[in-house]
Every structure is written in C-alpha cells, then in structure tokens.
C-alpha cells in the first residue's frame, strides 16, 4: 500500500470541513524576487540577515528576513518564539529586541554588526547568548531569548526545509509533502 493510497484511506473516512490551505509563501523565492516587507523595516531586515547568517550560515540567502516578516504578519505566527508564551502579538518583541541590539551596538561604539570582523562578531554573539551584553534595554526580551530567536529562525529556513534535510542527508519521509520549501 503506497502513501498516496494510505492518505486517501485516512482522509476519506471523515466528514469535516477542510482547513484553510497552507500558504504558498517561499522565503528564498521571496527574497530573490524582492517581495516588499510588511512588518520589518529596512534596518531591521539588514540586522536580521547579518546576525542570523552569522549564527546559521546560509540563513540570509534562505530568506530568513522574509520568513520572519511573513510569519509576523500572520495572526498565528509559527516562529518558535510562540512557545515562549509571551503576551500579545509577537511583532513588538522582534521590534523591541532588534532596537535593543542596535542601541547596544551603538553604545558600545560599534558600527553595523555586518561590518565587524568575524572575531568581533563572535564576541558580540557570545555576549548576547550569555546575557552579558551591555547595555540592554530592559523592556526588550532578555538577550539570550533574542539569541534564540535569531538562531531558531535561521535554523528553520536553512535546515527545516526539504532542501535542508537533503543537505543533511536526512530522509524527509513525508506523509504529505509541504507545498512550500518546508
């Protein structure tokens, strides 16, 4: 019995209304096509791409900014931050953390994160990861949470897709293959 037949058996036995179809959004394609952002500002996009790419090489080209923007614009974002169980919408937490990071970089006398040497970037990332970066706006999520946001979202677009599995030589083995890259 093949998968297609199994799905037919499993799905045909119920009589319920169908869910809304999955979005066909593809962040890599969206980036390549220069799809306009709905939630993130140009400065935020630049910061996300440089930071997430430093954490998860390949995240920039995989469209991490478009992925975050697309999810933040939805009523139920699937970003891993949803499990932090924060109050209200997720977008303000991204705006706040990115602003806190930018302000800290400025206060430390640094230029843009992307302009730093790999060693300097590593030092900054370690300070964020361990929560020792100073200063940090207390109104934003703690630095380690921000580290997790940037890393997790990068992991999603680089390793969570069918292509990402393939790069790991890990069989995807789907019941129902995602229509998008994940």
């Amino acid at each position: 019995m093949d998968r297609r037949h199994l799905l037919k058996v499993g799905g045909a036995s119920l009589a319920m209304t169908a869910a809304a179809p999955l979005s066909l959004f593809d962040p890599r394609v969206a980036r390549a096509q220069g799809i306009p952002f709905k939630v993130l500002s140009p400065d935020e996009v630049t910061m996300i791409e440089s930071l997430s790419d430093a954490l998860v090489p390949g995240a920039r080209d995989a469209g991490v900014s478009h992925y975050i923007d697309h999810e933040l614009a939805s009523p139920s974002p699937r970003l891993l931050l949803r499990f932090a169980q924060l109050r209200g919408q997720l977008a303000p937490y991204y705006h706040g953390a990115l602003a806190a990071f930018a302000a800290s970089m400025t206060a430390q006398g640094n230029g843009a994160f992307s302009s730093l040497s790999p060693d300097a970037q590593h030092t900054i990332i370690e300070a964020v990861r361990t929560g020792t970066i100073k200063p940090w706006n207390a109104g934003a999520v703690p630095p380690p949470v921000f580290y997790g946001m940037m890393r997790n979202d990068g992991v999603d677009v680089v390793y969570g897709s069918v292509e990402g599995f393939k790069n790991l030589d890990m069989p995807y083995m789907p019941h129902i293959m995602p229509k998008t890259t994940w």
């Binding site: 799905g11 169980q85 083995m173």
Partner: peptide, 26 residues
C-alpha cells in the same frame, strides 16, 4: 479551526500551528 487528516502536512513549522499560540491563545 477545522483540521482534517488530509491537512496534516509533514513539517515541523506546519506542526506548530497545531500547538497553542497566536491569536487564539492567551
């Protein structure tokens, strides 16, 4: 919302929709 077996896409990112969060959960 409704969720049919045929809607169950094999994806971790999709699966997060099945857990609480977003506009329904407070």
């Amino acid at each position: 919302r409704s969720l049919l077996p045929a809607d169950m896409v094999s994806s971790d990112i999709f699966a997060r929709w099945l857990h609480w969060g977003g506009d329904m959960a407070e």
